[in-house]
Amino acid sequence: MWDLHLLNVKTSDAESVGIFRIHHSLGDGTSLISLLLACTRQTADPDKVPTIPGNKKRVIHSSEHNFTKGLHRYVMRIWFFMKLFWNTIVDVLMFMATIMFLKDTTTPIKGRPGSVFNPRRLVYRIVSLDDMKLVKNALNMTVTDVALGVTQAGLSVYLNRRYGEGKKDRGATEKNNNLPKNIRLRSSILVNLRPSVGIQALADMMEKDTEAKWGNWVGFALLPFKIALRDDPLDYIREAKATIHRKKNSLEAFYTCYISELALKRFGIKALMINCQSYINKMTIVLSIDESVIPDPRQLLDDLVQSLKLIKDAVVERGLCHE
């Protein structure tokens, strides 16, 4: 999982060179670098951990502190907290209602009672991360927005096909399709609420009788999918961006963190789990599925990949960016 190579190569800054090779599953780059630095001490003061230069604070000139700008910031801050408070109340109530009685629509991809014990199959497909970044930059959003939009599009196409099996096909357009109206389909996502640790925090964790704690602080959030076919492929992305922006303005995950054990028992492992993992210039889409519910997982992968292609082609054809 990891190894260390010490090279007897003298440089202008050191007597030798150490090279670490660490598997990504052990941690992210920032945390691992902080951990390694926390294991070292300053040459000038062996009791202190190394310091890293921080960003310089922007100097605010007095001209920026006029009454109009100050009042505008004050009003916007009040509006932000009001919106945050309202969204949090709504999301927490919806979360509690879901635990007690509010269920998702019964769809062809909804697991049956006891399906949590069924064997699962893993399938994956690798797509171009550059394609997702192209859409991201053209529409001024994040890769997460694009990934959610592609997922909504792929699921909508897949469900439209499943609903049409054994029936008269009504088409695959926004107005004519096989999808029922107002499908409620939500995903339970994990949110790590623990703030990023620095060098000093990691150094404190290695001391005995420290109050600093290891591990993650995990909360849950319910992410609704809008299942519907769109004639304009970019509508999937716009809807995804609005959904994620709404969730960012809520403290739902902080409150659900305290009822995580109950929530995990309630939601469990579903018939379909989707994971998107980026590395260098590739994005790997991994599906964990219950084959008794989703017998054709590769078809779902095809729908996801085709949805990304349609969205990218729409961006290029409209001249929103240059390849």
Rank of each mutant, 00 (worst) to 15 (best):
R161I: 15
I244K: 05
C321Y: 04
W79T: 10
V218F: 02
V49Q: 00
R125E: 12
C257E: 09
D204Y: 09
S187I: 14
V315H: 01
L37S: 00
F95Y: 13
D47N: 09
E174H: 03
R77L: 10
I294S: 05
V150K: 03
P108N: 08
I311Q: 06
D130K: 03
G154N: 05
I33E: 11
S16N: 06
H61R: 03
D313F: 05
I285N: 02
R112M: 09
L262P: 02
I311K: 00
R246Q: 13
R238Y: 14
R112Y: 13
A221Y: 00
R120T: 14
Y258P: 01
L134N: 05
F80E: 01
D13C: 14
L308Q: 10
H245Y: 12
R298S: 02
M273I: 15
G111R: 04
A38S: 14
D145R: 02
L190D: 11
P119C: 11
G164D: 13
N118M: 06
G149V: 15
K168C: 09
K213Q: 08
M100L: 12
S292P: 04
L71V: 13
V135F: 10
T30W: 02
T98S: 10
E239K: 07
T144A: 05
D235W: 10
V146S: 05
L320G: 01
K241S: 01
H24G: 04
